[in-house]
């Protein structure tokens, strides 16, 4: 119980990232596992014959199922909250993290959207401070929300900016 409270949002609920992120990651997983399995199966098949192919395909299937199950869990773990003075970001299932980034410490905001993300209408927002260890990346935001967040963050960052 108290484990979940460690990563509970302060006051209100976490804002979740778009559910489309699950579809996107599943698609990426499906393609990469299929390609990898195919390559491995062909190579092993040429060397060891049919049994090796079956083992490779089996392993690929297991990896696929496990991944498909893991992705929604991972998606559920993402969350962010905008407070008055800082942004909170949480993520991770095995290794859970919660990062508190004061707006005044922000050096710049990155909004990135790859070709695949664009097809799903998603974008990734990342906050950078003067410390490379700061772990404030929010993937799978709808484009409009990403733009809103970026503008809000840069406005707040400017208003509260502190020297190093």
């Amino acid at each position: 119980m108290d484990q979940d409270q460690l990563f509970a949002p302060p006051g209100e609920a976490w804002q979740q990232v778009s559910r489309k992120l699950v579809s996107l990651r599943r698609l990426v997983l499906l393609v990469s596992v299929t390609v990898c399995t195919a390559v491995v199966a062909v190579v092993l098949g040429l060397i060891f014959g049919l049994p090796a192919v079956l083992i490779a395909v089996g392993a690929g299937l297991v990896a696929l199922v496990w991944g498909l199950w893991l992705i929604p869990r991972n998606w559920r773990a993402w969350g962010y909250a905008e407070r008055l003075d800082d942004l909170l970001v949480t993520h991770g299932v095995m290794f859970r993290r919660l990062t508190v980034v004061p707006y005044g410490r922000m050096q710049f905001v990155d909004v990135a959207s790859g070709p695949l993300e664009r097809r799903y209408g998603l974008a990734t927002v990342q906050l950078h401070t003067a410390s490379p260890a700061t772990d404030a990346k929010i993937p799978g935001l709808p484009a409009a929300e990403a733009a809103r967040l970026r503008d809000r963050l840069s406005a707040l960052g400017e208003a509260q900016a502190a020297g190093l």
């Binding site: 095995m94 993290r97 004061p102 410490r105 404030a136």
Partner: peptide, 28 residues
């Protein structure tokens, strides 16, 4: 005054023991 950001991290072993670590991030 020099804190850049604050993080909590909890790995699987730490979770079983009910522990977590806190990192205070500074410039590199």
């Amino acid at each position: 005054a020099k804190t850049q950001s604050v993080r909590v991290v909890q790995g699987p072993l730490q979770r079983r023991l009910g522990l977590a670590s806190v990192a205070v991030d500074t410039t590199p």
